Structure formats: C-alpha cells, structure tokens
Amino acid sequence: MSGNRPDVVVVGSVNADLRIEVDMLPRPGETIHGGSPLWLGGGKGANQAVALARLGRSVALVGAVGSDQVSAGLARQLAAEGVNIDRLATVEGPAGQAVVFVDPSGENSIVVSPGANGAVHPDLVRRAHDELAGAKVVLAQLEIPVDAVLAAASATRGTFVLNPAPAVPLPPELLRRVDVLVPNRGELAQLCAAQPPATVDEVAALARRLPCAAVVVTLGGDGALVVAGDTVRHLEPPAVTAVDTTGAGDCFCGALADALADGHPLVDAAAFAVRAAALSVTVPGAQASMPTREQVLVLPAPADRHPEDRMEVPHDAR
C-alpha cells in the first residue's frame, strides 16, 4: 500500500445499490409499484469506509470488485471519496449488488447478491497483513465470507470491531477476538438464538450472553445501548426527521471506529456515532448520506442515562 498506513482498515463488501422508493414494503407474494430506480454505490464495507473518509479519517478498504464497468465505477467512486483502495482486488464476474426498497417513513428492506464479495477469501485478506496489524481500528462486517473476517481479526493488533450484519452463525473463535460487537436488535437475537428483545433490559441481558469484550447495540430511533460487563449505558439520539434509514447502521459503525481510533472511551465514541447516524437518516441514500465531522458536531449530544459512568474500550490480549 502506498503512502502512510491508515488509522482504520475496513474489511468488507462493495455493492452497486438499486434504490426504489415504494409506498409500502412488499409482503410475501405481493407485487407493488415503485418509483424510478436509482443506482448508487453501496455495500456495508464501502459504506463504512466512506463514512470514515467523510469524517476526515485515513481509511483503507480490503475487499473485491468484479471485472465489469459497474465495478470500475464503484472503485473510482471510493477513491474520489478519499478511501485508499490499494487492497481492493479485481476478480472475474460482476460486482456485488443490492436491491433496496424504501418506504415513506424511511424504513427499508434489502436483498443482497454477493457477486465479487464472495471472492474475499482469507488469502486476499492476509495480503493486507501489515496494514491490518498497524491500524488503530479494524472494522469488519458479514457480507463477505466468515473465514475472511476471522483472518482479519487474527491479524489485528489494535481494536477489532465487528458489525455482524447480515447475521450468520459465528464460530466462538471469532467472537472471542472481537473487542466491540455492533449488532442491531434482530442480529443480536439471531446470534443468541432468542426472540428479538422488546426492552432495553432485554437487550442488555442478551448482549451479556455473548463472549465479546463489549457490545454496542444499535436501536434505530432509540439510539444505542453500550454493554460491557456490569456497565449498561443507553444513549438516546437527537430528534431528527427521517427520510431514509439506508446506511444508518453503517454510518454508526464508521463513526464509532473513527472515535475509537482517536482513543475516546467507548461510551463517548458511541455517543458520537449516535449523532452521526441520526444525521445520516435525514438524507436519501447510503453513501450520499454520510456526514462530515463538522456536521456531526453541531448536533446536540445524545441523552445519556448514566453520565457519571465512563469506561475505556475493553481489549483482550491476543
């Protein structure tokens, strides 16, 4: 990789998103009419890398695109955002693709076809060993094969953050290597083989069942819950008008990684991420909605249920 090593390395997916506005999200067996289709850059890895770059963070993306013109455009778009793509491989076939339906309230349903993301194998990740080992934070998701995520975790010497989306069964070896796990309610429930939690207390109880050092559960319009040991912190977001929630979770993960790279305590990092994610839902699209640092800092801080309690990021000895 040319130049200085990045503060944050994102290991994950790159997609071409087809966004369609609908009056209501389709139910099984139902055909509905949608608005004009709009092609946008997406993929959880790419979205999180763009979120970091928009915040001014030095960031590199480890992943893969295809050999088609769509893939070439996605790579150019990432580079234009300031993401280092030296470790973005090109493989035969199409790019990953996602179809995103968005209803008038901003809620979405997404179907993903892996494409080139399925070719992100452990050997590809290991080629970026020096960057992974030198990064302050490594951030991964699950739109690439799990064994590639494990390879990234094994190479990490800083803080390893995993966004377990979409939720799939994870080997205990991987979970034990996670410093900060960032699921939403549904993903948390699937990881714990439980019913989706209805209350903050139920979220905390499920989070404690996981062997990770710390868990930050994104709660949509209810903000986020930080759980580490006996400490539970509920951070409520500032009031905003949601236009499109696509990419909000990715914005949260990127902003969390950004703040952790600066050495902020986990609760403070999560509070910054809550503000960034709240701002992102006010703009349509995923990557297009990622805010700058200046935009985030003008928002009021989220309400903190336990302001007297501060904790550092737990970090297990590897």
Rank of each mutant, 00 (worst) to 15 (best):
R5K: 14
P6H: 14
V9N: 07
N15D: 12
L25C: 06
R27P: 07
G29Y: 15
G45K: 01
N47E: 03
N47S: 09
A51W: 12
V59N: 07
G63Q: 04
V65N: 05
Q69D: 15
A79N: 09
A79D: 13
A80T: 12
D86H: 13
A98H: 03
V100D: 03
V100R: 02
V102R: 08
S109D: 11
V111H: 06
S113P: 10
P114A: 15
A116R: 10
D123G: 10
V125C: 10
V125D: 01
D130N: 14
E131L: 14
V137P: 00
L139N: 00
L142R: 04
P145H: 04
P145G: 05
D147C: 07
S154L: 15
S154M: 06
A155Y: 02
T159D: 01
T159F: 01
N163W: 00
A165E: 08
A165I: 01
P169K: 08
L174C: 06
R177A: 13
V178P: 00
D179R: 00
V182Q: 00
E187V: 00
C192F: 04
C192K: 12
A194W: 05
P196Q: 04
P197F: 07
A198F: 01
L210K: 01
A228L: 07
G229S: 14
P238C: 10
A242L: 02
V243A: 08
A261H: 01
G263N: 11
V267M: 12
D268S: 14
V274G: 03
R275G: 08
A278M: 05
S280I: 02
S280G: 02
V281R: 04
A288G: 12
A301K: 09
R310H: 13
D316Y: 10
